[in-house]
Design a protein around this nucleic acid. Structure first.
Lengths: 186, 186
DNA sequence: CCTTGTTGTTATTCACTGATAACTACGTCT
DNA sequence: AGACGTAGTTATCAGTGAATAACAACAAGG
């Protein structure tokens, strides 16, 4: 077991990853810090001590997810700088259950000013990045982002992504997107 | 003032409308029944008595919003049965602050099984309805829904819809969609 | 006018949950 | 070994918020 003693930074990293999973599953308000602690294998008060506040932890989780999206896009663009390449990268991220759903929950929780600030800034960054990397028009970038949002919403509804509930309309919608359904080896 | 006495059905309708506003602003978990009561001008326990449970009230609000979307689509299709016509109807709905954001919050709260059931069923219904009314392909319907989701997400982030925070990237994105920005008279 | 059913309220509960305080355990350096 | 700093815990609090219970006020019909 990982019952070892870690530095605060290392443990913080584990807690952050647990937070992404938990927030992805139940959203900002819906997730209890206790659940995150359970997932990370530490006590609830320690989670708070490491991040100060549930809100700050959520913001850290959001930023982490955005970082990973941007990183994935940049790497994909190094190989082929077009939308299809980025779409593939997004797909790969989806395999990590509910990673992207955290973003959606951030958007939904934008009523909370501190969270709204982060959501708006990072979404704008991603929009700009997509255009910068691929050189596509605003119109094309919009369609790309729109499809991404639909995918994300469907993942939140549990009709897309791994371990999804199979529904005819959802499968048909997924069929219209070039989803490759990774099989581990590729 | 409307300090009159109403039938339970009438008062329920007022509470439902208040609930749509409140849930649209703060989501399922983020909204307190007390806030809904305040908006509706009744006491918090009465809100619960009328709908049994906060969750049932949220589901009622979700269903109400879906009903209105479907109604708007049907009416628009009576005049002109194409996507552009439906898009106009969606736009009109957006002017009613945060009406559509309730849907998004429903999707986000799909972890709650009872809410997920409703979200999945009604979203599928809307997908089918769009195709039935306009006769477009699944691919076209998908693009339509995707754009709708992007708009909805942006509304949740408060960068689209009435009283929005103006940000360059958001304005540019909105510019790529044919948004007419109703001026009451049209 | 008085009774009855329905609308609505106030008072209260009870569980939950984020946060704090106070303490313990581990490791490391001399 | 022992002392100090950092990792981590247990115990607890204080606020909140959904839900219940008990009661009050209004209207309508006989």
């Amino acid at each position: 077991m990982t019952k070892t003693r870690l530095t605060a930074a290392e443990r913080g990293e584990e807690v952050l990853q647990a937070a992404v999973v938990a927030f992805g599953a139940a959203g900002y308000q819906g997730t209890k810090t206790d659940e995150i602690a359970r997932l990370a294998g530490v006590s609830q008060p320690y989670v708070i001590r490491l991040f100060g506040t549930k809100q700050q932890l959520f913001i850290a989780a959001s930023n982490r997810v955005c970082d990973r999206v941007e990183q994935a896009f940049r790497r994909a663009a190094e190989k082929r700088a077009d939308l299809e390449s980025l779409a593939g990268a997004y797909e790969d991220l989806m395999s990590e259950r509910e990673l992207l759903v955290v973003l959606l929950h951030g958007f939904a929780a934008s009523g909370e000013p501190a969270i709204g600030d982060v959501s708006r800034r990072r979404f704008g960054e991603i929009f700009d990045l997509v255009r910068e990397l691929t050189g596509v028009s605003a119109e094309e970038a919009r369609q790309f982002l729109a499809t991404g949002m639909l995918l994300t919403v469907m993942t939140a509804m549990q009709v897309a992504g791994p371990e999804r509930i199979p529904l005819p309309w959802a499968e048909e919608l997924l069929g219209t997107m070039k989803i490759h359904h990774r099989s581990e080896t590729d």
